[in-house]
Design a protein around this nucleic acid. Structure first.
Lengths: 254, 254
DNA sequence: GTGCAGCGGTCGGCATTGTCGAACACTGAT
DNA sequence: ATCAGTGTTCGACAATGCCGACCGCTGCAC
């Protein structure tokens, strides 16, 4: 691959920096964090601001991400083929199981949630579309690591953070889980990422049997599990749903 | 304002073009649409792809928006101060009224939805966060046009598309509505944007009384309205909610 | 099978373009 | 009043990204 455009690389780094920092960032912080001259960083920010990718607080002068990113992110979802094909199936799964359903794809060093069906009751729930989940501890992540060599590489290479008491961080144990997942075709997460939360996931393949994403059923551990294991009928339902989406994706690819 | 960085402007134009076109676009289409040489467009796309802002279908070679945009758009929501302060109030409003609630801000020539609370029942609903609404026909848009001079300018200048039989497109009538909205402090949309859908909206101000957004209650016209008018208790509830958020925003700004 | 027309991708010369660092106006705290 | 910060502007320099011709490939048509 030939060389990238320098100013674009830097602009992308600025956006990622702003996305990482919780609070608004000042120009000097940004410039020094990226090793740029203040004037250079200012030029990039000025342009990003004019395009709506970045906003500036008029009183403090600090910068934060802009609204245009939200609009473009939404457009991304509109075009997302896997997501559109999964809509009805995931909806059915949430309805029949009474739990929330997530659709995730591999992105960078984690799982990006591209669709989220709320649990069908009146409880308060926050939408997680656009959020990232770790590869090593979540059901979605394990499934992707089991079928996608790139995901597996990231999970093995990356830091497997200890999120709860039950998180598996040891490399050998993790690889055994990946192996088990590939052989049986599904993965679970029983309080390995969040206390009290369990999940089951199954992979989605395209017609060349390449993994393109995963579907997960997530809910309170006391509802999903029986004596420490996820209830078999839920596992079946998730796998069934993932197979349906796979068929749908494969069929439409001509 | 000094000059913008050319390559960034062009990259932003590429992203917007990809966001606009429903389908994936080819390199030549992009280059000719923006009046660029193919080599130039390719350099920009190559960099955007490396950064994750654009993805390329390996078989057709066509380009579409990338996952990084979704992630960044989500980060934008995390930092959004107005949204975070409005969360609890809008939730209460949806709960007490039994209808869905939207929080919108002015962006470009329309209203950008930054928060959406689903109607609290089991019906299928699509999340509209990140979507745009027109200024001239929606309740949110009218409120923003009434209080924000920039929004008003956009609404007056822009094309006021006829969306339903009841949409007001005439400039004079529209300005009368804006005037009425400002004097009474709220706006409605009874089947002016979508058939069968009605809405009420009220403005959110910061402590300098500058408009920063608007809150709307949206639902089926037969539930929200009585003899062609939105029910008074709903109008009161929306205004109350908007005032609460305004107080919250104003109080936290020190 | 063979031609052609379209695609995406590459390369190198030219000059436009973005970079850099110093100087600027301004704010707020010392 | 001073000072240490901030975000911003500016101009000179050369590195940078732009352009247009060229390449290899695919797929359609004949």
């Amino acid at each position: 691959m030939a060389k990238s455009i320098q100013s674009l690389q830097r602009a992308a780094a600025v956006l990622r920096l702003l996305a990482g920092g919780e609070r608004r960032l000042g120009l000097s912080d940004i410039a020094s964090s990226l090793g740029l001259a203040k004037g250079t960083a200012h030029g990039i920010l000025r342009t990003l601001q004019a395009e709506g990718f970045v906003e500036q607080d008029p009183v403090s002068g600090r910068y934060q991400l802009g609204a245009e990113l939200l609009r473009l992110g939404n457009s991304y979802l509109d075009v997302h083929e896997l997501r559109s094909r999964a809509l009805v199936w995931t909806d059915d799964l949430a309805r029949s199981s009474g739990e929330s359903v997530h659709l995730g794809v591999l992105h960078l060093e984690g799982v990006l949630i591209v669709h989220h069906v709320f649990r069908p009751d009146d409880s308060r729930q926050v939408l997680e579309v656009g959020a990232m989940q770790p590869l090593h501890s979540t059901a979605l992540g394990k499934v992707l690591a089991a079928y996608d060599p790139v995901a597996r590489g990231e999970a093995v290479r990356g830091a497997r953070e200890q999120l709860t008491a039950r998180t598996v961080t040891d490399l050998e144990q993790f690889e055994a889980i990946v192996e088990l997942t590939r052989s049986r075709g599904w993965a679970t997460d029983v309080e390995e990422t969040w206390e009290g939360v369990a999940a089951v996931a199954a992979p989605i393949h395209d017609r060349r049997r390449m993994p393109v994403g995963a579907i997960a059923l997530t809910g309170a551990v006391e509802r999903l599990c029986e004596s420490g294991e996820v209830r078999p009928e839920l596992i079946t339902a998730v796998r069934e749903c993932a197979r349906s989406v796979s068929r749908d994706v494969g069929a439409g690819r001509f």
